[in-house]
């Protein structure tokens, strides 16, 4: 955190090299393999889950009768949760977002907000019209 009063000379604006970079990376190789295996496992899981009738399961769980359409929504929700988990793993580990600079996070905050806006309002426009 430097104050703007202390103006660094152009050469000093470069970040110092990280002498332990190679060791850090070596330590991560194992993580990458584990994450890859987890992703493969969850691919199988999500395929298997799609043949489970969550409508039925949720009907028992919440003691209400879900129609087939509602049951499908339950399956969609489950599949999207699994996909979000997988995507989160890819983003956090493979794309190094678990330890990225604040600048990158800021760019992504905006993006996530607007993309959610795009979905939410598209949904709302469908949900709340006067005439279809």
């Amino acid at each position: 955190m430097d104050h703007s009063d202390e103006v660094p000379s152009p050469g000093l604006m470069e970040a110092p090299p990280d002498p332990h970079a190679a060791q850090h990376v070596a330590a991560h190789v194992r993580t990458y393999l584990i994450v890859g295996a987890t992703l493969l496992a969850f691919t199988v899981i999500t395929v298997a889950l799609s043949y489970v009738d969550f409508g039925l399961i949720f009907s028992h769980l919440f003691r209400t009768n879900l129609s087939e359409a509602q049951g499908r929504k339950a399956n969609v929700a489950v599949a999207m949760l699994v996909a979000a988990f997988k995507a989160g793993l890819v983003a956090a580990i493979f794309m190094h977002l678990s330890a990225e600079k604040r600048l990158i996070y800021r760019i992504l905050y905006f993006t996530v907000f607007f993309v959610l806006g795009l979905f939410w309002l598209t949904y709302l426009a469908w949900y709340n019209p006067i005439v279809r």
């Binding site: 660094p8 470069e14 600079k101 600048l103």
Partner: peptide
């Protein structure tokens, strides 16, 4: 600048 080495304040 900063094509290879990171800029200090943005990292």
């Amino acid at each position: 600048p900063y094509t290879v080495v990171a800029r200090r304040d943005t990292g």
